[in-house]
Each structure stands twice: as structure tokens, then as C-alpha cells.
Design a binder for these strands. Structure first.
Lengths: 336, 336
DNA sequence: ATTTGCAATGTTAACGTTGTCATTTGTCGT
DNA sequence: ACGACAAATGACAACGTTAACATTGCAAAT
């Protein structure tokens, strides 16, 4: 409403209350207040009541910075994703955060935007917050980044892939094999002019490798690869770049749906089953949306939520296997 | 590969290096190292070189907890969203984080899952990290939550709505008016049996109110309201609950697309323009996907990215207007 | 009537930084 | 040749909490 006001509304005369402010009000020492928070059983009920009243009156909220410093346990974990907006990684963040938040962990989120320099920078920024663990999508892009993580001496989970030389824990799936599975399926369907569209990040490239190797091994023509911007709209016009193509593997469902939109405009999309499609399309991720559109999208289903959840469990315990392959599933619907 | 290994790989003999570890190695006092990091001009070039070498050798990363404690500036901001997975809020998080990360702020992310108790809890957890500001989607659901925020004495941005009595800053749009705009459009198109499908959170309810009030004022039949689970698949079957409906406003694009899928199964979806649709469908959010499907989705476009970006700017400065209406736009395509 | 033991509280020194003062040099002007 | 001054560095006390060790009482055991 009216222009600028002091941020702290008049409610309280500023200054966040500390342990000793509460202590003074309750007529005890600060350590007693600290105990009321952490180990209430050690404090006499009568005293405890007084302290609790004081905490309520002052609106005391413990300072986790100080706690973290004193105990060398910050109860926070760093999460690094390429991007969070309309991406399947949001599922992973949700999954891990649902696992971690009830345990009192804070999630510190950083985005690398598929940029190696920014990734290193964010990794370092994350580490400066002394998280108890790091969960990241993929693996560090640079040796500097990897060294940073190794030196930090905390659990690290790499996800969405199965790196050959992981730093610590892994929760992902085999991207190469995903490409293999798609190529096999398409060739078996009688397609022979294949293409791969999408990003050129390491994971997409692995998919491409599996796809390319397999298609050629099975006697199809050498697949084409089209590197696109990260938004699906770019793939609408991808068709123009791929004359004669009869099957497309898109790096993710958004690209696949974009490409299908291009096919529709060109009159190359049928309402019928996969076999009737002039151009088969397979996505990756299994967005809910893919199931709902027509023709429904065939895709490599990957459980992003489970990846996050598994990564969280991996960093919480030292026991058990450290490298978990969550697998994927080729879900065949009407698009290819 | 092989079972469990100590988390810290052999690279370094544990223990994260501190300022004084660097200082000892460089043969200076810790304050000098601190200056090399923050105020390099105050340190003689020769000394600075030695210190920088020591920092590199040890892999020194400043401890932001200690910095935050000493300076009472944590360079972090708390972000509270209902949910991050396949939701438009991910755009907002991306927007604000792109604005804030380059400035050295860390984003601490929490999800309320549309639960008031959890929201209060996460708010308090966030505050315990002493963020310099809080950005949240919507407004605190409880008076406790609001009090918590007011007492914290930091900038607070409420987003995705225009609350009547905001705590501090606001970056959003008028949800009631969005409902009004949709109802007007649908009634003008000659529809008179309207329905609203989606969640029952405060923002969805405001949309419903605008929608309902306007439809009735314009002489349509009293609209029906169907509260659905948060996933789009639920809306596929919504049609069965709405006999005779000829226009639907969905609380978001995902629900809209799900509902269209139900229409398609029922043979009630046409390839032609809005006028030919037996049942008009309007979404909200303007997912990229809505543009790509057929029939293309009419929707209330809301720029989630801009909301995040604006919220970030609002908490960074005290000057200028504190309440920004980013507006919305009724984008008409083929679905309604 | 001591001692023992435990329950309830308090004191002190960390944790890793930075702010606020010193202190040590060396340069310059007169 | 002497003080004035600045450049370079350092000592020390905060910041808000907790760990580790006191210190009180007072009840029970001897």
C-alpha cells in the first residue's frame, strides 16, 4: 500500500532474540535454554515451563548458523541441477527434499545451467555453506569440480547417470543402454532413417552413442543428430532439418512433443497406433503429459522422483551398496 | 564399484582447511588471509601471492557459516513453494535464483506441499537459517506463520497472488480477475454450463470466485466446482462428474490437458477452432506444451519466471513500489 | 552425621570468521 | 634528523551456539 516502510513491522523492536535473551527473561543461564530446546528431559519441569514461556514470548528461533558452527553439523545438503524450470529434475529435487526435510535438513539449491564454469562456481558456493552432503545431477564437468568434491570429505551422490569413476554414491540409470533400447525397437519396427534430437550434455550424448552404435550395428543408415536449444519449441521445426527421417529419438519428452507438433503441421501424424505413424517418435522421461496427448507418446520412462529419493537415502547412510541403477523402461504407446 | 570406502577419498587427510591453516602455511596471521579474500588491495602483492598459493594448495573454501555469524549477513534467501515437481513454480524458482545466484546468494528451498502445518514448520526451519529474505508462493496460511515472518525483520515477498494485507513485498497477479476474464470469455462465446476444476488452495479459490461471480452475473447457470488431486491424470475422468458441461476452466494447464484427454476419449474434441469445440477448455499457466498439442490450449498466461525475477528484485532493494502486479493474459487458441 | 550419588544448573572454551583497534615498518617533508 | 603519516600486518573480542567439565543441592545409604 503506502510507499516504503521499515521492513520489520512495528510488531517487535527489531533484533532477533538469542539464547541469552531468552535466558535473561526466564532467569536462567543460556545453556539451560539450549537444553530446553535439545534435551528437555535434563531440565526440571518448572524451569522448562518458564523457559518455554520466555521462548514463546520472544518468538525465539534458534540460529542454525551458530549451531552448525558449534557442532560441525549444519543439517543442510547441497543440491546442484542443470536447471529446475520445466524439467524432469524438479521431480528429483522434490523426491530428495521430501526425504530430507522431515529429518531437519535444509536443501540448498543451485543451478549450473549446463555451464561448466558456473557449475564449478556453484559447487564451491555450495561447499562454502558446509553442507553435510552434495547431491548433483550428472557428474562434475571439470576435474576442478571433482577435486573440490573429493576434498570436501562429505558424501556425494551423482544422479541420472552411471559414471565410470564415481566420486562416491550413484543413483541413476544407464543412458547408453537407453539409446540402445530405442534404436533396437525402432529398427525392429522396420525404420531405418533414424535421428536423435536434443541437447549435447554428457547424458544426452551417452544416449546418442548407444542409439548410434546400435542403429548402425543393426544395419540402419547412419543416424543423424540434431543439437537443439533447451526449449521444446525449437524441435517443432526440427523436421525441416531431417529430410526423409522415419524415426526420431528425442532427448526428452518435451522435445518429443515439440517435434510431434512439427509432424502434425506437416501432416505426418496419425491418430492410429505406432505402426501407422510415418515418423516414429520416442521421448525420454515419461511426463504425465505424454500419456494424455494424442497420439500418446512412447518414451523411456525414468523415475526422477525415485532417483532423488534414492540419492537422499544414499547420503544418509554409509552402509549398503553405494551405486544404484534405478533402470528405465521403454513404454510403448502410439507415437512410435 | 567395491563396497564402502571412507567418504573422504585419500586425496587429503580430512578436515576442511580453515583460515588459520592457510595462515600458518603462508606464515601470516589469519586476518591477513581473510583480507586476501575480501580486500586484496590492503595486502602487499608479495604476501598476497604467498597466501593465494597456500589457499590453492589447501583447497581453502571459506566457511560461510562463520562469515554469516560474524557479519550478520548470510547471503542466503529462503524460498517456500507448495511443490516444485512438474509445477509452474519451478519457473519462479529458476527466475529468482538466476537473479540471486550471481550476487552470491544461496537459495534455501522448502516445500509446504499445500499443508499449513508443514508450511509453518518449514517457515520456521527457513528462518532458523537466518536468510536475508524470504520469498514464498502465496501468503502464510496461518496467523502463526505470518507472525513468524513479521518478527523476523527481513524482507518478505509474497508471490502468485495480490494479498489484501501483504506482509511486505508482493509480485503476483489478480487471481480473481483471471477467473472473471475466463468467465466473460466463455459466456460471450455462448457457453452457459460452466465448471471449474483443480485444487482448492487459496489462489485457485480466488480464481473460482471470480469465475463463479461473473458467470452468474452474466446469466449463465451456476458453475460447478470440482476439486481434484494435484496430478493431471485425475482430470481425465472429471468429465464423468460434469454431465452437460460445455466449458471448463482448469486451475492449471496440466489439469486442462488431462481434461482434454478425457474429452478426446469421449469423442468431444475437435481439430478445428474454439467455436467448434463441444466443450471449451481454458487452462492457466501457459505451459510450452499447451501450444504444441492439438487442439492447442487456450490459457491464462502467467509469467512465472518474471514473478521470481521481480520478487528477487523486490527483496534486494528497499526503494520503489513494493507491490507489483505482473498481470496475466488470456491467450486464445483452439481449445476454447 | 557423614558420605555417596544423582538431578539440576552453571562456567568456560571452543567453532571459523570479521570489526575494531593496535603495532610495526618505511617514506617523506622540513 | 625528526616527527608525521601511510602502508602493511597483527591481537583480541565479538557473533550465537554447544561440548566438556564444574558446581550446587538434596535424598538415600552407610
Amino acid at each position: 500500500m503506502s510507499g516504503q516502510m521499515s521492513t520489520a513491522s512495528p510488531e517487535e523492536p527489531h533484533s532477533v532474540p538469542t539464547l541469552s535473551a531468552v535466558a535473561k527473561l526466564a532467569g536462567v543461564s543460556s545453556i539451560t535454554v539450549s537444553r530446553v530446546v535439545r534435551l528437555p528431559d535434563l531440565v526440571a519441569p518448572e524451569t522448562r515451563g518458564r523457559v518455554e514461556a520466555a521462548m514463546r514470548e520472544l518468538g525465539y528461533v534458534p540460529n542454525q548458523l551458530a549451531v552448525g558452527l558449534a557442532r560441525a553439523r549444519t543439517r543442510s545438503i547441497g543440491v546442484l541441477v542443470p536447471t529446475i524450470a520445466n524439467s524432469i529434475f524438479a521431480d528429483t529435487v522434490q523426491g530428495l527434499s521430501d526425504e530430507l526435510e522431515p529429518l531437519g535438513y535444509a536443501v540448498i539449491l543451485a543451478q549450473s545451467r549446463y555451464d561448466a564454469a558456473r557449475e564449478d562456481h556453484m559447487l564451491s558456493a555450495l561447499l562454502s555453506r558446509r553442507p553435510e552432503a552434495i547431491i548433483m545431477v550428472g557428474s562434475p564437468a571439470t576435474e576442478d569440480g571433482a577435486r573440490l568434491l573429493r576434498r570436501a570429505g562429505i558424501p556425494v551422490a551423482e544422479t541420472w547417470d552411471l559414471p565410470a569413476a564415481p566420486i562416491d554414491a550413484v543413483a541413476g540409470f544407464n543412458n547408453y543402454d537407453a539409446g540402445v533400447a530405442v534404436a533396437r525397437h525402432l529398427v525392429a519396427q522396420g525404420r531405418d532413417s533414424l535421428a536423435f534430437i536434443g541437447g549435447d550434455d554428457p547424458r544426452a550424448t551417452r544416449r546418442w552413442n548407444g542409439f548410434n552404435d546400435t542403429a548402425q550395428a543393426l544395419g540402419a543408415k547412419a543416424p543423424r543428430r540434431l543439437v537443439l536449444d533447451r526449449n521444446a519449441s525449437g524441435s517443432v521445426v526440427a523436421l525441416a532439418e531431417l529430410p526423409g527421417v522415419d524415426a526420431v529419438f528425442a532427448a526428452n519428452d518435451a522435445h518429443a512433443i515439440g517435434f510431434m507438433s512439427g509432424l502434425r503441421k506437416a501432416g505426418l501424424l496419425r491418430d492410429g497406433p505406432a505402426a501407422e505413424q510415418p515418423v516414429a517418435v520416442i521421448g525420454l522421461g515419461d511426463l504425465e503429459m505424454g500419456r494424455l496427448i494424442a497420439p500418446s507418446l512412447s518414451t523411456i520412462r525414468v523415475n526422477g522422483d525415485a532417483i532423488g529419493c534414492t540419492a537422499a537415502k544414499l547420503i544418509l547412510t554409509r552402509a549398503g551398496p553405494r551405486h544404484i541403477d534405478l533402470g528405465f523402461e521403454l513404454v510403448l504407446r502410439d507415437s512410435g
